[in-house]
């Protein structure tokens, strides 16, 4: 906002390399520092928890969020935002626990929510990119509508239970590694590789840097934004299936929490809001850091309100660090 001017980037002197190191450090997403701090805290306060088996169990709880974050990070790199992730989780939960899909094979239990996620992503993307409405409002509005639909259909009461096949998958492990964590890691690797190697990734970088120049260079700006929202809708639906399978029952309460966590982890992971920077690894670590942080808080008996406070503070602090850096 203030007028600033380029400052020297190659000022000489004895402390040159110290500054260079400082600049490198500040380029590292805060997620890594938070993760390191949490691990240290766990090791000091409760060494019993420092076993792969235990840590992975904590991380398993965040695998659904981690999958959704893969979508969020793409959307945010395209200078948009997806606040409808919570709504997609809720409607997925309803589809799987209401008995609407009773007796269907597992493939259908995954495909139907994915189809819903696709439609939600398309609606979000169309309103944002083609109608050019504000992304915050559109996705919040869509989230509200989805939640309202579920409340209306279920008359406000959480519906029944998740089919057993899904539950079994959510609880399975390969060796010590829980299956949901494997799904998450595989999805993250696929997204990272695609962003690195495909034209789509290059376009995303360009749009994040300067949308106007991207348009003048012939990039199909609206189509890219729609695509990121569709991908985010799909990944949110997949996350929703994983979340519901792990939860086991219907619920209408967790939507806002998931939405906030997806943004918190993405920002913590170094995706700078509205400037298009960031990778896949940072937000991945962000999710892990949050998972362990909340686990640690639970161990110490800190309740939901305390977690809200920590979560909000972490978002603010991470955003402030970027803000000061880019000023």
């Amino acid at each position: 906002m203030a007028h600033t001017f380029e400052t020297s980037s190659n000022a000489g002197g004895a402390n040159h390399w110290v500054r260079a190191l400082g600049r490198r450090l500040i380029e590292i997403p805060p997620a890594y520092f938070v993760l390191a701090a949490v691990l240290v805290a766990i090791a000091l306060l409760n060494p019993n928890l420092m076993k792969p088996q235990v840590l992975l169990t904590f991380i398993r709880q965040s695998a659904p969020l981690g999958v959704a974050v893969l979508g969020q990070l793409m959307v945010m790199r395209a200078r948009s935002i997806d606040l409808s992730i919570g709504g997609v989780f809720i409607i997925t939960n309803y589809l799987l626990t209401s008995g609407l899909l009773g007796g269907q094979p597992v493939a259908m239990l995954v495909l139907v929510p994915l189809a819903v996620g696709l439609v939600v992503g398309l609606v979000n993307g169309a309103l944002i990119a083609l109608v050019r409405a504000s992304a915050v409002i559109v996705t919040l509005g869509v989230s509200i509508i989805l939640t309202g639909i579920v409340l209306f259909m279920s008359s406000g009461r959480p519906p029944g239970r998740v089919p057993d096949e899904l539950r079994a998958i959510a609880n399975a492990r390969i060796d010590v590694v829980p299956v949901p964590v494997i799904i998450w890691v595989v999805a993250a690797i696929i997204v990272a590789v695609l962003l690195r190697t495909l034209i789509f990734g290059r376009y995303l970088t360009a749009i994040g840097s300067n949308p106007q120049a991207a348009r003048f260079s012939g990039l199909p700006l609206p189509r890219i934004v729609v695509t990121t929202h569709v991908l985010s809708g799909l990944l949110a639906a997949l996350g929703g299936v994983m979340f519901t399978a792990a939860l086991g029952v219907g619920s209408v309460k967790f939507g806002p929490e998931i939405m906030m966590n997806s943004i918190a982890a993405t920002i913590l992971g170094g995706v700078t809001f509205g400037s298009g920077r960031g990778g896949v690894a940072g937000p991945f670590v962000g999710v892990v850091a949050f998972a362990l942080l909340f686990a640690l808080m639970t161990v110490f008996g800190i309740q939901e309100p305390g977690k809200l406070i920590v979560q909000g503070t972490v978002i603010a602090v991470a955003a402030i660090i970027y803000g000061m850096r880019t000023r």
Partner: peptide
């Protein structure tokens, strides 16, 4: 501190 209004107020919403 140059934080986007949406992020800043979303964060404070959570804390409050």
């Amino acid at each position: 501190l140059n934080v986007h209004p949406i992020i800043m107020t979303l964060a404070s919403m959570s804390v409050v």
